[in-house]
Amino acid sequence: MTELSSGFLTPEFLAPLAALGAAAIVTYFWRALGVAVSGKVDKDSSLFRWVTCVAYALLAGLISRMILLPIGPLAELGIEQRAGATVISLAVFFLTRKNLLIGVASGAIALVLMAKLGPL
């Protein structure tokens, strides 16, 4: 754990700033461009409907990739564990008449148990 007194001008503090700054700039670029472009796209045009479809496909693609082929700590688990937990979460969600909290919680608990005990 780092001490607050280590100061802000150390290389340990400064070096990651370039990476974080670059990531923040490219991220904000998309958001600001979206605001700038949005005034020029008519909400009832087919172009707008196409952009909507692209947005939903992108989101679904990202979510499914995050579950099936994650980067980060989840990558240590097998795909069958993550897929299994996802199926459990979906099943509980529909069985509880679309209760989000219970659905999400059961998926996460299933994953933690499988990570601890191995695949079911």
Partner: peptide, 25 residues
């Protein structure tokens, strides 16, 4: 590299462009 980080994050976050366009109206 810094370029690799910026490029990867830009591609992961490209969804924010259509999302913002769709949300704004």
């Amino acid at each position: 590299s810094l370029f690799a980080i910026a490029a990867a994050v830009a591609l992961i976050n490209c969804r924010l462009l259509p999302m913002t366009i769709v949300l704004m109206p």
